[in-house]
Each structure stands twice: as structure tokens, then as C-alpha cells.
Simulated scan of single mutants.
Amino acid sequence: MALLPAAVPALRAENLSKRFSTTLAVDDLSLTVPTGEVFGFLGPNGAGKSTTIRLLLGLLRPTHGAAWIFDDPVADVARAHRHLAYVPADVALWPAFTGQECLDLLAGVGPGTDLAYRDELVARFGLEPGRRARTYSTGNRQKVALVAAFATRAPLLVLDEPTSGLDPLMEREFRRCIAEAAERGQTVFLSSHKLVEVEAVCSRVGILRTGRLVEVAGLEELRRLRRTEVTVDLSRPAPRLRGLADLPGVTDLRWASGLQFTLSLVGPPGPVLRALGETDVARIDVREPSLEEIFLDYYGEVSA
């Protein structure tokens, strides 16, 4: 695999904007992804992630701004795409081709493919390459695209919501492939609305909301977004639990009655569990809020 110099950013955007009629889909986005980084592009559904990716790849013309792939302007699509493999959010294959024929065709137009590794990935993802693409489910079409991308030796992998059709076992395999790509020195740009997925594989993230890049952060900064909502029903009143609000990581303690309360928890649950262990708990419910809820809570209403 011919990796490009580390001093050259894998991906760079300056003041990138895209307007569709009266809708500003991407608003003045500037971003640099260094070579060799696994970068997460995070945001709730509808935030503008796919539109941004199409701009970054030259598949849409920006209203304003510019982007580069390893210093090649994406306006020259053929030149820029020599350096990358792309998995779109909605994978479309040639319906009359078998999965194997699709893989062979994709290998022929890419920047080089490790065929032995591709065969290994076919087995690991449980893909049936002899079937016609028209018979594939959404998840199997996704597998074909992922196998083709991970087997390529392109220095940049751009993955847009790549696990949307995969079951949990295949999601685990996907994360393993990301780690292997990083070990080879490939740059990965991973767009997702799944906080847990991005946190598991990325070293740095950009957070998009309503078309605006509201933050670029490392994992430590990302983890402050993680919170758990806990609802507790008590068998009998426990006045000393009113002091839960003073425990580390506890926010937004709300009592619905003398026997039920909810709280938000960031960080280790140990102090809260120890406090609850000294009371008569009838039921406890733990829920991770959706990414949209987290964004609304953390950033508030951010207009485009």
C-alpha cells in the first residue's frame, strides 16, 4: 500500500458551505484530518453529515469554500479519488451481478486490493458471494461495500453510516477492521450517529449539528457527553437520598414523589450504587438517552 506523507493532511476543508434553495445544509465548515487518524464525524440523523461528505468528496459542488484530499482539490474528482475508498450510507449494487462480481468490479476501479485479505473478510462477515445482488438484504449490500473498502489499499477510507444494516456481531467485526486499517497506517473518516460506535474506534471527533461543526474534540472531551439516566422506585422513603445531588457525576436529580426519583449520571456509578445499597430499592431502570437528546441537552437549540 502506497501511503502518502504524514505531513500532508488526509482531508482538509476550508469554509465549506452548501445551500439548497432556502436551506443552508452545511454552514462554513473548516476541518483538517491528519494522515493516519481514525476520525469520527458525529451527529444526529439529519445533521448534514452525508451532505458534508459529498462535498468533501467532490460529489456535490459547494456554494462556498473548498476541500482537498491529500492536497488534491476535490473539484478534480478523478484525481482526488485515486487516494480513497468510499462506503455510502445507502449502498447500491449491480442487481444482476453476484456479490463476487461486484467485489471484482470494485477492485478493478480502486487503488489496489489485497485479494487474500478480501477473501478473509468475506468469511469474517459471513457474506455469500455467489448470490445475485438483487437478493441481498440491506445488511448484505453493506457487507459487500465494507469488504471492498477494507480490502483496498487506499490511504483514506470514508465510511458514511457504515453499520446501519449490520447486526451486533457484524458491528464487532467492523470495529476489528477499523483497528486493522489503523495499524496499516490508513486514515479513516467515519460518519455515524452512534456515540458508542465512534467512541470505540476513533481518536478524535468532529460534532455536527444542523449543518454546523460545533466542536472538534478528543475522546476525553467526547466522554463528557456520555450520560446515563437512572430511575429508582423505593419501597419506603429514604430521606438521606436527598444528598445524592452532591455525589460525583450526579446531575438533574428530580423527585417525582417520596418513593420515586430520576437522575442523570456521568462517569462511574459506584458512589450512587453504594448510596442505593443502603436503602430499600424496589426497582431501578437505567437508560442511555439518544444522541439527539444528548445534543439538545448539551448544546441546546443550535440554529443553522
Rank of each mutant, 00 (worst) to 15 (best):
V188E: 10
A179W: 03
R134I: 11
A179G: 06
G110L: 11
W255E: 10
A151N: 04
K18C: 09
R240L: 14
V188G: 06
D76I: 04
T187Y: 03
R212C: 01
E199K: 00
T279M: 04
V122Y: 02
P129C: 09
S192E: 09
S17M: 08
R12C: 06
D72S: 14
A133M: 07
V205L: 02
L253W: 06
E221F: 14
A116M: 10
I284M: 15
E199H: 09
R184Y: 09
S235P: 05
A181G: 06
I294R: 05
G258S: 11
A256I: 11
F261R: 04
V286R: 13
E128I: 14
T152C: 13
D28T: 14
G300E: 08
Q186A: 13
D280R: 15
L56W: 00
R240F: 11
I53Q: 01
V26H: 02
G249Q: 03
K49E: 01
T63G: 08
D104G: 05
L146A: 01
L222W: 02
L265C: 03
T262H: 03
T98K: 02
A75Y: 13
L159D: 02
V144I: 12
N15E: 15
Y117V: 04
E292P: 01
T63R: 13
G218P: 04
T228M: 13
E173R: 11
Q260C: 10
P269S: 10
L291Q: 02
P269C: 12
Q260V: 11
V198H: 00
T63L: 01
G108Q: 11
G110A: 15
R141V: 02
T32G: 11
V158S: 03
E288P: 01
L222S: 10
T113I: 03
E183S: 10
T32I: 10
E171S: 07
G277P: 03
L166V: 13
G267C: 12
D76G: 13
R236K: 15
G43S: 05
G126S: 12
D76L: 02
E293S: 06
V198W: 03
R209E: 07
A217V: 15
L156H: 11
T52Y: 08
R223F: 00
L263G: 09
G40Q: 01
G99A: 06
A80D: 08
